[in-house]
């Protein structure tokens, strides 16, 4: 079982950062609401507050990891210019997609949207984590701040969803491949 270096980096970008970040959202939103909504059943303990703060901080790291690894590791391979004389576009995903009217919108809509909208998520989540660190359970008394925090978190979730979904589709139609092959597990040949 082996994987190319570029495939591995794409997995880190999409699954390691992006998907984990997406998975963390539902719990974060539920906890933010539960701990800060007025009339909450109980006042959160310092331990609960610190735990959610740690959780939100990890989400911030994942969000920045996703956009930075996407923009500076995976995207340059995706948009690499085809050298003169090369006919096989397999290693040039952007040009492979734009070479056919049947796939060009995966780039002009999918990648163009994904590469920009994704940046709204780390900006929003950094704000959410900061505001929670600053106010914590006192958010129950700050209805408008709470509304803004949850609103920005929901938009960050949607933006990440758009980026993640298009990332998955783009990787199906024009995967970023190449680089050294990395052997993960040495398999056995069938029939032996």
């Amino acid at each position: 079982m082996e994987i190319s270096f570029r495939d591995l980096m794409t997995v880190f970008h999409g699954m390691g950062f992006g998907a984990l970040f997406m998975l963390a959202f539902s719990a974060a939103l539920a906890e933010l609401y539960r701990m800060s909504a007025p009339g909450a059943a109980s006042v959160p303990s310092a331990r609960e507050h610190n735990l959610l703060l740690l959780y939100l901080s990890v989400m911030v790291v994942l969000a920045w990891g996703a956009v930075l690894s996407g923009a500076y590791i995976v995207y340059p391979w995706y948009r690499a210019v085809v050298p003169e004389g090369v006919i096989d576009l397999t290693d040039y995903p952007k040009f492979l997609l734009t070479s056919s009217p049947k796939t060009s919108a995966w780039h002009s809509l999918g990648m163009e949207w994904k590469e920009h909208v994704a940046w709204l998520a780390p900006i929003a989540m950094t704000m959410v984590a900061y505001v929670f660190a600053k106010y914590g359970p006192a958010l129950a008394k700050q209805k408008q701040i709470r509304t803004a925090v949850i609103g920005f978190a929901v938009v960050a979730f949607v933006a990440t969803g758009v980026a993640g979904a298009f990332g998955a589709f783009l990787n199906k139609y024009a995967p970023v491949r190449g680089g050294a092959m990395i052997e993960i597990i040495a398999g056995e040949q069938e029939g032996q």
């Binding site: 600053k134 106010y135 700050q142 920005f152």
Partner: peptide
Amino acid sequence: DEIPNGPGAAAILAA
């Protein structure tokens, strides 16, 4: 006895 909303407002508007 209350935390002012200024720091929160600054973070939200900046975002």
